[in-house]
Design a protein around this nucleic acid. Sequence first.
DNA 1: CGCGGGATTGAGCCGAATCAATGCAGGTGG
DNA 2: CCACCTGCATTGATTCGGCTCAATCCCGCG
Lengths: 240, 240
Amino acid sequence: MDLKPMRCESCAIRNRAVCGVLSESEITKMNAISRPKFVAAGQTIMADHEPTEFFANIINGVIKLTKMLSDGRQQIVGLLFAPDFVGRAYSAESKYFAEAASDVELCTFPRYEFEKLMAAHPGLEHRMFEKTLDELDACREWMLLLGRKSAEEKVSSFLLMIAERTQNIGCAHSDEVNFVQFDLPLTRADIADYLGLTIETVSRQITRLKTRGIITMKGNREIAIPDVNLLRQVADQELF
Amino acid sequence: MDLKPMRCESCAIRNRAVCGVLSESEITKMNAISRPKFVAAGQTIMADHEPTEFFANIINGVIKLTKMLSDGRQQIVGLLFAPDFVGRAYSAESKYFAEAASDVELCTFPRYEFEKLMAAHPGLEHRMFEKTLDELDACREWMLLLGRKSAEEKVSSFLLMIAERTQNIGCAHSDEVNFVQFDLPLTRADIADYLGLTIETVSRQITRLKTRGIITMKGNREIAIPDVNLLRQVADQELF
DNA sequence: CGCGGGATTGAGCCGAATCAATGCAGGTGG
DNA sequence: CCACCTGCATTGATTCGGCTCAATCCCGCG
């Protein structure tokens, strides 16, 4: 009997991950090469300029991609949530650190095996391509934030982004949803590194949003946004 | 007789552009749907949130991709040089303005036709995918710059980037090349918008580099870097 | 010659960084 | 159970890099 019977079938992200495009027979091959993996918060998943031997899908948790200057200044250049894909196709080495921002469950597969599968199934490569295009769009959005927004706008935009990626608002019927609640998946230090600010500035801006009543908090992770559109006004000011 | 005989054959970017992967017979189809186009500096190529009906390769010139906030603050989120590809696959509308930063020669093709070609030739899609991955890497590099570098480091990094993309240094045998000369393809205003700075700050930093002897200039476009590695030291400080 | 657009230079100001102290919760060991 | 530590977060005082506002320069062009 097979000791790995159809895990993909019951996978929480089966349809939303890149695997979503695979047929039943293809998913069986995928199943054969995949292995689950748990990574604790703070652990490194892929080191900068180290050869990477595996790719992965995120089952749950958050991964941060970071870059660093020689004197230690750091910038988070990407955040990955379930069901995102981890790893850069067609490149033996990663160009940044990938680190678990929270506890993370992965579904890993060997690099070589996955690239073979990609070559054999153009649909899979196509899906990867589309995901990459979306990442590029998000990245450019963030360039606008980093280059041109004030600290207040940065923090507000960050909260909105987390709310959207966490709560699936911002998609269909989002306009009606105006109250959101969620846990921040990052420390103040990580938020600062994502926004190009210092910890202190992030903290001050959050306090300001609290005193203005634009957000409310329980503890320092649990956030509620009573009026999302109001926060959007503070955050965005984006044309179109 | 055919009135468009084999233009691709004599194309300056034939092998470096995405077309590089196409076979002789495929390139003929490409040839059939492509049309040259000239765009003067300052002209819009694709408007934000407008439907785009064509893609293009850059034959020569520079295109800037920009995003804007409602109050007019602007950020350049990408620069395209020959032989780069212009346009976002699989998306009816562009998420940013594309504008000619200098006079530009394009080789355009209708969106629909190109996507058909891409579907029929997985090699072409693969090539597009790899280009997109490279753009994503460059974009993340820039996030580090925008979020964490000082004005001096930003300007220095910018000059290096232009030198590298313009002069093909930084590739093979680059270590020996230590003197470079080139023309800036952007105005001070554009440079500022690319670096998340103001015109004045860019100007001051350039003056500083001049007085320190790290660069020399003739007019305000022509730049020479006597010691590239020195400039790298000022610019980068990147770990690894 | 005067005009206009881009670039430079200067003076002063302000937002975010820095430096430093304090607060707070969870965990550990006496 | 309490005292203490340790890591994260908040708050305050001060500094400073880059922005703002304003004047001037430079050069090509009508």
